[in-house]
Design a protein around this nucleic acid. Structure first.
Lengths: 222, 222
DNA sequence: CGCGCTGTCGTACTTAGTACGAGACGCTAC
DNA sequence: GTAGCGTCTCGTACTAAGTACGACAGCGCG
């Protein structure tokens, strides 16, 4: 047997990246509460204490996966049309946060930005400045755009359903309280609008983004 | 001794509201991680298992305090000027979420809205409709306003500092990575703008809200 | 007086984070 | 080679936290 490896060591050997990627996978599958050192180690095919060779503690894993998620968001390119670039980045951010909704809640409480997060900020600022935004307007616009994007993702994550399915299923239990007449306007909006076939909350994202970008464009050329 | 009470029972007797209020107080003091059944029971002056007489489990506490926080946000009044009412409610929401930043992360993952949350939705919808917004525009506007408000609160919560103090303290450790020239635009914005005396991220809220309300007003009167 | 209800708590089991240190493997300098 | 050393993995065990289960104390009532 020429192979020097110690028996069937199928595992390609652990490293920090594999730990963080595994953590993202586990969180995607079972939510952030489902991510434990033990569930992670099982996913990685090792024993719990092995992961501590690559991270100091669980908090470091949480910081790491937040930055990892950020790294998946498309960076805007300062060379292109600012509006197209910012739109692309906003859509990408929303898409990524839809895939990893647990990351939204982690952003609060994790206060030290990782390299991907910083790179991201840098690219957005560069794009806006290159688009003719003054420093002040850039600051305003960035705060506004990020607030909108993260906030929208937060609301989407809070929706009990995914995509366009089963609006009715969810509305059912709430409808009981509705029937008491306590929330008349909400009921009316729900039945007249939200529960109509074809309504999809996700479509609201584009509407709001367009409004914001229109308004920013007006202020940029002044 | 005519008093029938059993000795020095200073405690006014537990109830569900006192449990939830205590949980908010503990979370305010020590963050959401500092809120445990044991820390809560100590705060309440009882033993851990006593709180389980009022709530089924910890998740119910988390749902409850999210709704309790929501109940602290000023409701807009459908009778008044829609713009003033919506502004007041947005400012109030931001203020409340600044006081209880841990609530933002809880919104995601807690998918069943409590009565305060529903009452809130009802009032906002009523105010917009009374202000002349069509159902479609109401839906658009609500998604936009809430996204912005929650997202802004989320970003504020992520800031490592509170209020207007010590921007420099925080920038220091990050500046190390800055010095490598990896984030030139971010550095420039920081030194030229963010780190200038008088800059306060919190002020961005009003700017963005004004932009959104201006744009909504335009679309409402069309 | 016994019964059932309300509220509090003691005990103990389970899960999770992780400190500590033991080893297994390979590499290098003698 | 062989003694050591760095790299990596893991076994053991301690602590903190959620909470099931049931005891029990006080109270009102028939």
């Amino acid at each position: 047997m020429p192979d020097s490896s110690a028996l069937r060591d199928e595992r390609p050997r652990l490293n920090r990246d594999r730990v963080l990627e595994g953590a993202v996978a586990v969180a995607d599958a079972g939510g952030i509460d489902g991510l434990t050192i033990r569930s992670l180690s099982k996913h990685l095919g090792v024993k719990p204490m092995s992961v501590y060779y690559y991270v100091a503690n669980k908090d470091e894993i949480l910081d790491g996966i937040v930055d990892l998620v950020f790294s998946q968001i498309d960076l805007p390119s300062p060379g292109g049309d600012w509006r197209a670039e910012i739109t692309r980045r906003a859509d990408s951010a929303r898409q990524v946060l839809r895939t990893h909704p647990w990351a939204i809640g982690l952003m609060e409480s994790r206060t030290s930005p990782g390299p991907a997060t910083l790179r991201h900020h840098d690219a957005v600022i560069a794009t806006l400045r290159a688009g003719g935004f003054s420093p002040a307007l850039t600051a305003h616009a960035y705060a506004l755009l990020d607030s909108y994007t993260y906030g929208f993702a937060l609301q989407e994550a809070g929706l009990p359903f995914d995509g366009e399915d089963t609006v009715g299923d969810v509305a059912e239990p709430i409808m009981e309280r509705f029937s008491t007449g306590e929330y008349p306007h909400l009921v009316k909006m729900a039945t007249d609008y939200y529960l109509q076939p074809g309504y999809n909350f996700g479509n609201e994202f584009e509407w709001g983004l367009t409004l914001i970008l229109d308004a920013l464009a007006t202020r940029a050329t002044r």
